[in-house]
Design a protein around this nucleic acid. Structure first.
Lengths: 248, 248
DNA sequence: AATGGACACGAACACCGTTCTACAATAGAA
DNA sequence: TTCTATTGTAGAACGGTGTTCGTGTCCATT
């Protein structure tokens, strides 16, 4: 009875293991070398995003990569939006969640966030899709559940923990998206609009006196190698948690 | 010598007041009732976004609203990206920055963030454009400068303040974008994918036992009227600041 | 062997951002 | 006042996007 893509999608938002048995292909596979499956679609989609960024992921490009036409994809996927959701789901499935520990919970939660960040950055721009992902997706819920478990093990008040998870995931998404966008601007530096840190420093130096602090602390404003800012913000949020244990 | 749009844009990133004199129209204006100006473009663009959301803002739609063809816009605006930047600039220009006060600095910084949030939410989805906005835009720099001034008045270490501003603005953007996306999903509830809080509660209740905490604390996870989560996160970040005054 | 159903796919639709080109109208020069 | 160069206006078109329709093709079952 092979479910339609719509049904598959609905199932992904209800209870279920998330990976229903591949269901031993029944229909025709044409003269194709490899039949088109949802997994194949997701796989090549990740390949495209990894190499060329999320912006390059179009239905046509994806179809070309699979050596078929665009319409063929719609037998397996409802939408581009649906494809996005599948990608985010797969990505979240890769996250491994530690056994919550009442002592090391801070490191644990930071570790999960870092995993998320690195996954997002591995596929540049994909965090854009994460924003639109509905909160009822099972794979993303699995990560939320894991983070909730960690915070609760740390003795955080449930309401605080729930909101904190939301904030953390939102920030990780936003941070990753911003990094990806900046990298993209750097890579296609033909128009070279905003660029290196040195140039930014120059520009800050050239500002009118209406910007006294920006000029004076240009060094600090443009500082931050690798992921210093990321660690800083996570620390800010997590260290602020315990003092809110009894939330009004 | 009327600058080209490219020159105008470049000027926006160098020093300048931001509003060069309107320069008394010289060229022809055809039989037009109202000539097309950058201000007119920005104005109607805001109108579209306010009524129909950022996704509805296309060059063609904008041209139609101005009773002209798409190509006419490119005499005043470099790109769609450029238009986005203009919109964000205008939006930031509306923010009013308080005189920094060493006592009330917490409320002041929260107030600025709230202003930003409300502006973003007034024009649903526009925060998407804010992500891409280059950090050298004068109008956005003005807001940064103001926030920096407030934090410094609060006695925060410059490096900490610089990073905190970054985090705060990033979070405000992300929060506004998320809210807008959720609202959009609610409004076009034909597909009614994810919906009311009640439905979300039901869905959480129907989860398998692999999600014990999510099921148990479904109430907390879905709680948060209006902007509770926003205030919570801002509080988290700001209250965490002073203890980092001496940053490594 | 025949049939039904699942799958693949080419063509097309409506839309997007952007560019090319020709056009009209004014401001200044003669 | 006439002429011309400048400059904003626009129509048409290009290459791209997501998505749908109808048709074709093959397999597994009867």
């Amino acid at each position: 009875m092979s479910p339609t893509p719509q049904e598959r999608r609905a199932a992904r938002h209800r209870l279920g293991t998330g990976s229903s048995a591949p269901a031993a292909r029944r229909g025709p596979s044409g003269g194709r070398k490899r039949p088109i499956t949802v997994d194949a679609i997701i796989g090549t989609a990740f390949g495209i995003v990894e190499k060329e960024g999320y912006e390059a992921l179009t239905m046509r490009r994806l179809a070309t990569e699979l050596e078929t036409g665009p319409s063929s994809l719609y037998a397996h996927v409802v939408n581009k939006e649906d494809l996005d959701e599948l990608l985010i789901g797969r990505l979240c499935a890769e996250i491994d969640l530690p056994e919550p520990d009442a002592v090391t919970w801070r490191r644990q939660i930071i570790d999960v966030c870092t995993q998320l960040r690195d996954q997002y950055l591995r596929y540049p721009g994909i965090s854009r899709a994460a924003f639109a992902a509905a909160p009822s997706n099972l794979d993303t819920l699995r990560v939320s559940e894991g983070m909730l478990a960690i915070l609760l093990a740390g003795g955080i008040d449930p309401q605080t923990a729930a909101w904190a998870i939301d904030s953390l995931m939102l920030y990780v998404n936003a941070y990753s998206l911003e990094i990806s966008l900046v990298n993209r601007r750097l890579s296609r530096s033909d128009h070279a609009w905003v660029v290196s840190r040195d140039e930014l420093l120059d520009r800050f130096a050239a500002l009118p006196d209406t910007f006294p602090h920006t000029k004076r602390y240009a060094e600090e404003l443009t500082a931050g190698t690798t992921h210093d800012r990321f660690d800083f913000t996570l620390g800010l949020m997590i260290d602020g948690l315990p003092r809110q244990q009894r939330n009004p």
